[in-house]
Design a protein around this nucleic acid. Sequence first.
DNA 1: TATTGAAATGCAAATGTTTGCATAATTTTT
DNA 2: AAAAATTATGCAAACATTTGCATTTCAATA
Lengths: 334, 334
Amino acid sequence: MKSEINIKSIAEALSVSISTVSRALQNNPKIGLKTRELVLEKAKELKYVPNPASMFLKGKKMFVIGIIVPALDEEFFTKVINTVEDFFEKQGYQVFVFQTRNDMKRQDNALELMLKYRVDGLLVSLAGNTTDYSKFKKVEDFGIPVVFFDRVPRSYKSHKIKCDIQKGAVDAIGFLKDLNCKRIALINGPSNLDASDERLNGYLLGLQKNNIRSSQSLIKSCDLTKKSAMAVMEEFLSQENVPDAIFGFNDYVALYAMLVCKKRGIVPNQEIKFVSYGNLPITSLMSNPPLASVEQFPDKTGMEAAQLLLSIIDNKVEIDDYREMIIETKLVVH
Amino acid sequence: MKSEINIKSIAEALSVSISTVSRALQNNPKIGLKTRELVLEKAKELKYVPNPASMFLKGKKMFVIGIIVPALDEEFFTKVINTVEDFFEKQGYQVFVFQTRNDMKRQDNALELMLKYRVDGLLVSLAGNTTDYSKFKKVEDFGIPVVFFDRVPRSYKSHKIKCDIQKGAVDAIGFLKDLNCKRIALINGPSNLDASDERLNGYLLGLQKNNIRSSQSLIKSCDLTKKSAMAVMEEFLSQENVPDAIFGFNDYVALYAMLVCKKRGIVPNQEIKFVSYGNLPITSLMSNPPLASVEQFPDKTGMEAAQLLLSIIDNKVEIDDYREMIIETKLVVH
DNA sequence: TATTGAAATGCAAATGTTTGCATAATTTTT
DNA sequence: AAAAATTATGCAAACATTTGCATTTCAATA
């Protein structure tokens, strides 16, 4: 009901055939210059907007990429998005964004939308509570390639670009050991995240390598919200075995934990040292950022994921020739 | 070429007519229960995905809303996005996001995409360098309603939800006056932004109301990047007339300016007081946040914009019965 | 002038789905 | 048992555009 101008309207207004109009609009050289100009002019005059239906009917490419992230208010993801956009724009694609806010239902809806809009490819960082991958299967069965990045599925077979979380953890623990920390606590993320598992493993491995005894009382999880992270920190400060270092799931968690210290008059990074993941620019605004943070290179992650996706779209890599890539991490000391 | 499964495949597989399949998939009660179940089962088995072409051909609603913002890494916009999503999800719509990164060309591309995908409505916060509104005209002529929020066009007629920037500035200056500040500097945004004009006007009005003489040397602009904001602050500190207060375009600008102070050993908010716009949660993580910040209520902005857009979509408000709304601001002292 | 060749344009089929109308099958009523 | 009412299914047109093939138009050549 929106606009009733179609190529037929233009054809009638100019007394030419529909095919002539169609070809003129595509700048087909078979159409004479005069006719072509007339058509283009009339199209503008009538405010013609092509109906995408035929694109879908004829199975044409849409030149659109979808990117699904857990959250838009995490700097890591916006950095990835920017890189992906820059890359695909150069290739003539547009990128649109969808956030799941860590909800699988929203994620599934997003996948249906991508299917409906026939995107040419999909980059995904998983919602935290993803338990069922059938929608991803559906998308891929349909022929739309999916590349996971950062928060990648544990067992589901697919293309994956992830960073070496474990090595980052080992480095971080080593750094704290050198500062003579002995009671290093981990504020981890939710247990259903693969990323949490890897942090825990890296943390334990790091302790082991540095001959530090691990303790159940120094390992706690939060759901990554401010409230939850602060509550966990309160627990640490209230218990008998008070940590002398905090290893945060990411910079935000560390910053939230620091807030609790400040509230209690404890100056961060003195009695209690902080390290975390992300090395996000936001920390550069703080007077007391974490002493060190594991850089995860969102630019590189985004670039690798985008390049892999394009290769699959261009049939240079088979859609089911699943590739995995590990992005190196680096502990950055501030 | 992606998937060749259509309702015809299902119809043939079950030896029923295409119309029966179509109706069964729509849960049309005219179709017998057994048939319906058979069809649904077969559809799943064959991994049928409906072709959106017919939606477009028949002019059906897509139940999709687009939202275009200048940047995803500004907390204000992600908050608006969250609110808009929550609202529209309840109404059965999906929301997809596009960022322009303050580039009009990207914005125009995004508008073409919205047209191509036939979104039911559009929420837009303008790219900084928007000079030409013809693409917006095109979208609206086509019948897709557009509601601008926060960064709204100055002269282009449209639906607009914006906040009372000027009053915020006057309040902020009053606050600084009470702290005995006499040389209040403004670090404004780029001059092509309407939001910059309003801040300047509010700033000047505030000075006037408080009997403070304005000075050209206390007004500078940056392009909102960290580098640019810090450069401006350097200038202020190097010039003869050193400010005793900084009024920042937003919290980020103020935080960047504070970094310069710290680098020079000046403790922020002592010799030089800071106030800004946004009252963003991020400032709560700082040990020295701006003394006060003008809250712009992203939730309210998003909600009002979403509600207005829905009213237009539902034909409760005519698309060209342009509404404007001013969201009150509030100076929040930390 | 007739013939050839090229350029410009038109016809009609094809694409996937919905839907009003028609028909067929079944059940209910007389 | 026949007629009427109900239920289930099918036919075919409609939607906007593209495109292979056919046709027309016109200019150039023989």
